[in-house]
């Protein structure tokens, strides 16, 4: 009987482990391997270049700008959907008329693919007939025209807005679930003790939403690190690399310039950044667990 159970355990675990190894572990190890080579992605012959690729990172001006853009992208892509999601959840939790309809509407964008979202926002930002400029022209009465995605100082910000529009619904739903898990008694204590609406939100609700916030931030971090597709669709990292993130830079170096070895080195750096963030996340998760169970 016990041998049977062991047999099935091995069989059932073997399949996911094999898939995980083939699709995650093997590519990961391959990246590490190629980061020490000058492989161009096609030629079966390549040389080991030691730490040259990593040394090149230090002098790569585009890498430095990609790091800054990634930091801006990540901070904005974490904070904006989190804060907007929280605000919407608090608003919709207070039994506004038509709440269910609003919840559905706000959640809808997350069901769309990044390509669709990107294309919608390209149209919104379009200089001549885009919705944004049309509205601005109607409001200001001027003949305002601005190519939001074609200007280096607004390209990244414009993609961040589109990204936040898509991601906010997910944050909102997680916060709404967090709000329903706050025991009624705790809110009733606020009523009995005389908390104002703001005190109730600041001292009780937001701290009690910590477990939900941890999930939202974790998802935002993971999604923002993976956030390549919408940037690729909307700006392709341009203009003039102004919206190049590490993921985009890695793609350009690997698949446009065919510097697979260097691209792998960038991916290793990206991996180490992700690892550091995830370690910080797990350390904080333990603290949250100790307080909230």
């Amino acid at each position: 009987m016990e041998r049977d159970a062991l047999y099935w355990r091995v069989i059932l675990l073997a399949a996911p482990i094999a898939v995980f190894t083939a699709l995650v572990i093997w590519p990961l190890l391959s990246s590490f391997y190629y980061s020490f080579t000058n492989w161009n992605g096609f030629n079966p012959e390549y040389d080991f270049v030691g730490l040259d690729n990593f040394a090149k990172i230090g002098t790569d001006r585009l890498f430095a700008s990609a790091i800054i853009n990634t930091a801006i992208w990540m901070v904005a892509a974490i904070f904006l959907p989190t804060l907007l999601g929280l605000a919407l959840a608090l608003l919709l939790d207070s039994k506004v008329p038509g709440g269910t309809i609003f919840k559905t509407l706000f959640y809808l964008p997350i069901c769309l693919s990044a390509v669709v979202v990107g294309q919608i926002w390209i149209w919104i930002y379009q200089g001549d007939w885009g919705l944004l400029n049309t509205v601005l022209r109607a409001v200001t009465g001027s003949d305002f025209s601005y190519a939001w995605l074609a200007r280096p100082n607004t390209a990244l910000g414009s993609v961040i807005v589109a990204w936040s529009w898509q991601q906010t619904g997910l944050s909102m739903v997680i916060f709404l679930a967090g709000l329903t898990s706050i025991p009624d008694e705790l809110l009733e204590v606020c009523d009995i003790e005389g908390a104002t609406a703001w005190q109730r939100i600041r001292i009780v609700v937001i701290p009690l939403l910590t477990p939900a916030t941890v999930v939202v931030v974790a998802l935002s971090v993971i999604n923002s690190l993976k956030g390549f597709d919408i940037l690729y669709i909307m700006t392709g990292g341009g203009p003039f690399h102004s919206s190049d993130t590490l993921a985009m830079h890695m793609y350009n170096e690997s698949f446009k310039k065919y510097l697979m070895g260097y691209g792998s080195a960038i991916s290793v750096v990206l991996f180490l950044i992700a690892l550091t963030i995830i370690r910080i996340y797990f350390r904080n998760l333990r603290k949250v667990d100790e307080i909230y169970g």
Binding site: P183, L186, E188, V189, I192, G194, V204, I291, G293
Partner: peptide, 28 residues
């Protein structure tokens, strides 16, 4: 409720998990 000058002790204790004992007691 806050103007009735009543205090309630709940079955579930209703303590705020993120506040210390001192902060819970001094909440009001």
């Amino acid at each position: 409720p806050s103007d009735r000058r009543v205090a309630m002790v709940f079955q579930s204790y209703a303590l705020f998990p993120h506040l210390t004992v001192a902060e819970n007691i001094g909440f009001g």
